[in-house]
């Protein structure tokens, strides 16, 4: 499985520590909220809301350089509810991976 990285953030912050830290702080704050929102809407079988959550999380996946996971998430977002358990499993693995990575930053 591919590994997350902060290359995008480093490039964007142009080696300025304060800017880099600001992005990381936002990630640390926003990612768990979005992950919780995803699981909540999924549990309540609210597919449109779930799609919105996946859509938002896709941006974080891309920012953390997870290209393959981004494409899978994109496919998952566009799939019919409950029709692609395989994509759901992969997506949720990505969420765990990202959260773990962000926690360690």
């Amino acid at each position: 499985m591919e590994e997350p990285n902060i290359e995008y953030i480093l490039k964007l912050s142009r080696n300025e520590e304060a800017i880099k830290q600001r992005f990381i702080n936002i990630l640390k704050f926003e990612l768990p909220i979005e992950i919780d929102a995803y699981y909540m809407s999924l549990r309540l079988n609210k597919w449109p809301q779930t799609m919105t959550c996946i859509h938002k999380l896709k941006n974080k996946i891309a920012i953390l350089g997870l290209e393959n996971s981004y494409h899978l998430a994109d496919e998952y977002e566009k799939s019919n509810p409950n029709s692609r358990k395989d994509l759901q499993i992969e997506f949720e693995k990505t969420l765990t991976l990202m959260q773990h990575f962000v926690n360690c930053l």
Partner: peptide
């Protein structure tokens, strides 16, 4: 998304 706003603002 707060992160997206921060990216654009940067």
């Amino acid at each position: 998304e707060m992160l997206a706003r921060a990216v654009i603002a940067q």
